[in-house]
Amino acid sequence: MQLRKLCREDWQWIQLWFQDEYLNAELGPLDEEWLNHVLNEVGGVQLVVECGDRPVGLIGCVWGNGTDLPHAITDIAVAPDLRRTGLGQRIVAEVMNWEGHPLARNWVAYVAQDNDRACRFFIHIGWKYCGIEDEMHCYQLAIPVRS
Rank of each mutant, 00 (worst) to 15 (best):
L69H: 07
A77W: 08
M96I: 11
V92N: 04
C7A: 13
R90E: 12
H137G: 03
G131E: 04
Q2G: 06
P29Y: 12
R120Y: 04
V42T: 14
C7N: 11
R90Y: 01
C51I: 02
V49D: 01
V145L: 03
I132W: 05
W98L: 10
E33D: 11
D53N: 09
I76P: 09
L87E: 07
L58E: 04
L16G: 10
V108D: 09
R90L: 04
G86F: 02
A25S: 09
V78W: 01
S147C: 07
K5H: 07
P80S: 03
G44V: 09
G28L: 13
Q89C: 13
Q19H: 10
E21Q: 13
V111G: 03
V38K: 08
G131I: 05
V38D: 12
Y129D: 04
R84F: 03
Q19D: 15
H124F: 04
P80M: 00
C130G: 02
V95F: 02
Q19R: 15
D31N: 15
L30Y: 06
I76C: 06
I123S: 11
W98M: 06
F18T: 04
A79T: 04
L23H: 00
W13T: 07
W17G: 10
I143M: 14
A77I: 11
T74E: 13
M136C: 09
T85R: 12
F18Y: 15
R146Q: 14
G86P: 06
A25R: 13
R146A: 12
Q2Y: 01
C138E: 02
W127G: 03
R54K: 13
C51S: 13
H101M: 15
R54I: 06
N106C: 11
N115A: 00
I123R: 14
L30V: 12
C7D: 12
I143V: 15
E21D: 14
F121P: 05
L3N: 04
L30F: 07
W17F: 10
V95P: 01
L69K: 13
R54L: 10
A104H: 10
P80G: 03
I59P: 00
T67Q: 08
T74R: 10
E41F: 11
E99I: 02
T67M: 08
L39M: 01
D114I: 06
G64Y: 05
N115E: 00
L103C: 06
L30W: 13
L35Y: 00
T67K: 11
L27R: 07
P29E: 14
H137D: 09
Q140G: 04
Q19Y: 10
G86C: 09
G64D: 11
M96R: 14
C130F: 01
R4Y: 11
G44S: 09
D53A: 05
G44T: 08
H137S: 01
L35T: 00
V111P: 01
Q140P: 00
L69I: 12
Q113S: 05
E50Q: 14
L6Y: 09
E32W: 06
G44I: 08
V42G: 06
Q12V: 15
L3P: 02
A112P: 07
V56S: 12
C130P: 02
V38M: 03
L3Y: 06
T74K: 08
G43F: 08
F121E: 08
V42L: 09
A72Y: 05
D75I: 01
G52H: 07
H137W: 06
F122Y: 15
L58F: 08
L27N: 06
E32H: 07
W34E: 13
R117Y: 13
M96Y: 05
